[in-house]
Each structure stands twice: as structure tokens, then as C-alpha cells.
């Protein structure tokens, strides 16, 4: 039966050779793009994870606030914003930090009665929320509260989601394409299938050639998609390397999945259509 299925399947392929080749290419495109999409998703993932990292925002408090007032204020803000981790920087620590950037700080402080305003640091995963302090009387200034890393991470995350959605849409498109193709091909042979049933062919005998006829272009589509994905990711890697970024890689598992998808999508569609054809009882 297997030999018969292969022989008859190859005959069907020969009869529809050009269409099968075109469809293998057409099926390979969305599968390949889905593979590239997943590779890009993986490439963007480390950047996307930056969006969840903790950022520290510096806040200068009014110099007229004494120690008790500062502590009270910090306690109130901690209660109001539990997600903030507020740390008061001691004046020594602050002086030490500033001296890295401003070597004449000691002289400046020694010359006059200038004193450094109290500094606090707020560690949070949502630095933009610190902006609310800008309007408070106790606050002299709020440092940069837009993290570049976080912005980059958010963009990367959105791109990664877009890639996932695109890959899913492409795979669904490929499945629909395979289903329509197989459906049309089988209904083109509907009379033959009916005659085969009437002369005593089992469902296995009927399905075998059609499954072979769809498995071969499906396999070809899978192979083509793997080659296309590899070529695309290699091209993208050359580009990212030139920009000093990490290379884009496709895991072997994804390539295997592409092969499996290429093979199984038309096969699944064929089995479904043949079962439906049999269930309808189209016996001439």
C-alpha cells in the first residue's frame, strides 16, 4: 500500500508539478518570515528586559528642611509610594560624589557659607512617577526621570511583541494557504476519489497518494524556509555586527520546527479535507 501510495502520489505531483513548486515557494515565505520574526524576538529579548530594570532618580530637597522634617517627609512619601525605595544621601557622601565631577568643591565650600542641599535617591522601576515631586515645596529639583535603558527596553519589547504577532499571523496565513491549496486539489480529484471508493478502495489507499502529493511540496517548503531564514539572519547579523550590536541567531529548534510546520500544515489540511470528504458520503 505504501509503494502504491508513493507511486500514485508522485504521479499526482508530476501532473501538477509547476503548481506544486509554486506552492512550495509560497508556503515557504510565511514560514521563513515567522522563523526570522522569532529570531528577532529572541535578539530583542535582552533589550526588552531592560524595560523592567530599576532606575534611580536623584531628588534635591530644600536646604531649609532640617533633619526631622526630612525624615518625616521621606516617611510620608514612602507611605504614599510603596514602590519607591528612598535613600537619603549623607552630605559627606554627596561631597565625595560631587568632587569627582567638580574638583574645586572644597575650596568653594570653604570660601563662603555655601552648603550642599540634602539629596535623596529614589530607586523605582517606574522612574517617570517621580515627576510628581517637581511641584512640591520641599523639593528643590528632580533629576532626570526618563531612563534611556528603559525607553530602549520598552521599544524593544514592543518590537518583540510585534514580531511574535507577525510570526503568528504569518503561520496562520501559511496554514490557511495550505488548507485552501489542499482543499482545491482534493476537490479537483473528487470524482476520482468517489470512483475509488465505489470500486472498493479503502480510505488508506485513497488518502495515501494525496498525502504523498502534499507531503513532498510541504517538505520542500520546510527546507526552503530553513534556507531563507538562515540567509536572512546571516544578513541581519552582518548588519548588527557592523553597528556593534549582538548577532541575530536562530536556534536549531526553530529551524526544526519550520521543517515540521512545512510538512505538517499541508498534511493536516489534507487529512482534514479527506475525512470531511468521506464524512459527506460523496459516493457518486
Amino acid at each position: 500500500m505504501i509503494r502504491h501510495a508513493i507511486a500514485e502520489g508522485l504521479l499526482l505531483l508530476r501532473q501538477r508539478g509547476a503548481v506544486s513548486v509554486i506552492l512550495a515557494f509560497v508556503l515557504a515565505v510565511p514560514i521563513s518570515l515567522a522563523g526570522v520574526g522569532f529570531s528577532l524576538y529572541r535578539w530583542l529579548s535582552p533589550m526588552a528586559s531592560l524595560s523592567g530594570q530599576t532606575s534611580t532618580v536623584a531628588v534635591l530637597l530644600h536646604p531649609r528642611l532640617d533633619g526631622d522634617q526630612r525624615l518625616r517627609w521621606i516617611a510620608e512619601e514612602t507611605d504614599a509610594h510603596p514602590e519607591w525605595r528612598i535613600t537619603e544621601i549623607s552630605s559627606d557622601d554627596l561631597t565625595q560624589r560631587l568632587q569627582r565631577w567638580f574638583p574645586y568643591l572644597d575650596e568653594l565650600i570653604a570660601d563662603g557659607d555655601a552648603s550642599l542641599p540634602p539629596l535623596i535617591e529614589i530607586a523605582t522601576t517606574k522612574p517617570e512617577t517621580v515627576a510628581v515631586l517637581e511641584d512640591r515645596g520641599e523639593v528643590l529639583a528632580v533629576g532626570p526621570h526618563s531612563s534611556f535603558q528603559q525607553s530602549l527596553g520598552r521599544v524593544a519589547q514592543r518590537l518583540a511583541w510585534a514580531m511574535t504577532a507577525l510570526s503568528s499571523i504569518l503561520l496562520t496565513g501559511a496554514l490557511l494557504l495550505a488548507a485552501v491549496w489542499v482543499h482545491v486539489e482534493l476537490y479537483r480529484h473528487g470524482d476520482e476519489i468517489t470512483i475509488m471508493r465505489l470500486v472498493g478502495a479503502t480510505e488508506g489507499t485513497i488518502r495515501g497518494p494525496f498525502l504523498v502529493a502534499v507531503a513532498v511540496p510541504g517538505l520542500a517548503a520546510g527546507l526552503l524556509s530553513v534556507v531563507a531564514t538562515k540567509m536572512t539572519t546571516t544578513g541581519l547579523s552582518q548588519l548588527t555586527s557592523a553597528l556593534g550590536l549582538a548577532v541575530v541567531t536562530t536556534p536549531e529548534g526553530v529551524l526544526v520546527l519550520q521543517m515540521v510546520a512545512g510538512l505538517l500544515m499541508p498534511l493536516g489540511a489534507a487529512v482534514f479535507t479527506l475525512i470531511r470528504h468521506a464524512a459527506l458520503g460523496l459516493d457518486g
Binding site: R197, L198, G200, E203, A278
Partner: peptide, 9 residues
């Protein structure tokens, strides 16, 4: 349906 081919043969 699975038995039909045997009859038709």
C-alpha cells in the same frame, strides 16, 4: 464506512 470497501470488493 470502514467495512464498505470489503463489501464492494
Amino acid at each position: 464506512r470502514s467495512r464498505l470497501p470489503l463489501l464492494r470488493r
